[in-house]
C-alpha cells in the first residue's frame, strides 16, 4: 500500500524514467478516451431519461387540473374550446382505427410478399427486390401524406362517393403501404433463418413449394413473423404526418374508418402549429397525450421485442 502511494507523489514522479513517464501519459490519454466514449454511449440513456422526465413532469401539471378519471372516461376531447373536455378516448379510438386499417392492409400483403421472396423467388429477384424495399422504407412520411390526401382518398371516393375528404380509410391504407416493406423484410429475414434442413425434410416427403412454405417454414418462423406485425402496429400508432394531413383534426369517438377523426399524433401537431403559451393547460395536454402514445408504443415494442427474442432462441 505504502509503495503505491509513494509513486503518486510528485517528488517521486520526477525520478521516473522517461520511458515510464511516457507510458503514464499514455495511460491518462487512454482513460480520457474511454471516458469520453462512455459519455457518448450514455447519451442514449440520458435521452430516454429526458423523454420520461419531460413527459411525466408536464403530464403531472396537466393532471393537477384534470382528473385521471375524466381523462380516461370522458367521451370528448376539446381542450382548446371554451367548454373544455379532456377525455383521451376519441384520440385513442382514432389512433387504433387507423392502425387497424393499416394492419388489415399490410399484414396480408407483407406476409405474402415475404413468403414469395423467401420461398418462391429466384435469388436474383430477391436481391433486386430487397434493396427496393429498403428504399421504400426510407421515403419520408410527408410524401405519403400527399399521396393519401390527393391520390388515395380521391380514388376511394370513386368507390365510396360518401367518403369525406378527411377520413381514416385513406390514411390507414397509406400507412399500411408504408409498413408493408417493414413487415415483408422482417418476416423474410425470419423465414430465411429457418434452417434449410427443415425445408429439405419437407421436400423429401414430396411436399410442393406451397406446402413447404405454408406447413413447415411459416409455422417455424411464426414468432419472428408475429414480432414483425407487432412492431408494425407500434409504427402505425406513432405515425404522424399522414394522419395529420389526411385524416382530419376533429377528435371523434368512432371506430368507423369512413369517418374523419384525429389521432394522438395529429392532435399534437395541431396544437404545435398553433400558438399556445408555454405552461397553459393546452400546452400541457400535448404532453399528456404524448405520454399515452409513448405507453402504447412501448407496450407493443416490448411485446415485439420478447416475441422476436423467443424466435431467435429457437434458431
Amino acid at each position: 500500500m505504502n509503495t503505491a502511494t509513494q509513486v503518486q507523489e510528485p517528488s517521486q514522479r520526477t525520478t521516473i524514467s522517461p520511458r515510464l513517464a511516457k507510458n503514464y501519459r499514455r495511460n491518462i490519454t487512454e482513460r480520457i478516451i474511454e471516458f469520453l466514449l462512455m459519455l457518448c454511449a450514455l447519451s442514449a440513456v440520458f435521452t430516454t431519461i429526458a423523454i420520461v422526465v419531460i413527459l411525466v413532469y408536464e403530464s403531472y401539471s396537466f393532471f393537477e387540473h384534470v382528473s385521471v378519471f375524466d381523462f380516461l372516461t370522458d367521451p370528448q376531447w376539446t381542450p382548446l374550446f371554451e367548454d373544455a373536455h379532456y377525455g383521451i378516448m376519441p384520440l385513442v379510438s382514432g389512433t387504433l382505427t387507423i392502425s387497424f386499417v393499416a394492419l388489415a392492409f399490410a399484414v396480408p400483403v407483407g406476409t405474402i410478399a415475404a413468403i414469395y421472396l423467401s420461398e418462391f423467388a429466384s435469388h436474383k429477384t430477391r436481391e433486386t427486390v430487397k434493396p427496393i424495399l429498403e428504399l421504400l422504407a426510407g421515403v419520408p412520411t410527408i410524401a405519403f401524406g400527399y399521396f393519401a390526401l390527393l391520390l388515395v382518398t380521391p380514388l376511394l371516393q370513386m368507390v365510396f362517393p360518401d367518403l369525406p375528404t378527411f377520413n381514416m380509410l385513406g390514411p390507414g391504407i397509406v400507412i399500411g403501404i408504408m409498413v408493408v416493406p417493414y413487415i415483408a423484410s422482417v418476416s423474410e429475414d425470419a423465414m430465411r433463418a429457418v434452417p434449410m434442413s427443415m425445408r429439405e425434410g419437407a421436400y423429401a416427403m414430396g411436399a410442393t413449394r406451397f406446402q413447404t412454405a405454408m406447413r413447415v417454414v411459416t409455422p417455424a418462423a411464426i414468432s419472428g413473423i408475429v414480432a414483425a406485425y407487432i412492431l408494425a402496429i407500434s409504427r402505425a400508432i406513432g405515425e404522424t404526418m399522414v394522419v395529420a394531413i389526411a385524416a382530419g383534426q376533429q377528435p371523434n369517438l368512432t371506430f368507423n374508418p369512413m369517418d374523419s377523426a384525429a389521432t394522438i399524433t395529429a392532435y399534437i401537431v395541431q396544437v404545435a402549429m398553433g400558438d399556445l403559451p408555454h405552461g397553459s393547460i393546452g400546452y400541457q395536454s400535448i404532453f399528456a397525450a404524448g405520454l399515452v402514445l409513448m405507453l402504447m408504443t412501448l407496450f407493443f415494442n416490448v411485446l415485439g421485442h420478447f416475441t422476436r427474442k423467443k424466435f431467435r432462441e429457437a434458431y
Binding site: M198, E200, A204, M205, A207, Q211, R215, V216, P219, A220
Partner: peptide, 29 residues
Amino acid sequence: RMRISMVFQKPNPFPKSIFENVAYGLRVR
C-alpha cells in the same frame, strides 16, 4: 420423392407435434 423417402444427417423434425410430424407425408398426399 413420394416413392423414395429420406432420413437426414441431423434430425430435422418440423415444428409440429409428434403425431403431425409422422402424418406429414400422408397429409401432403
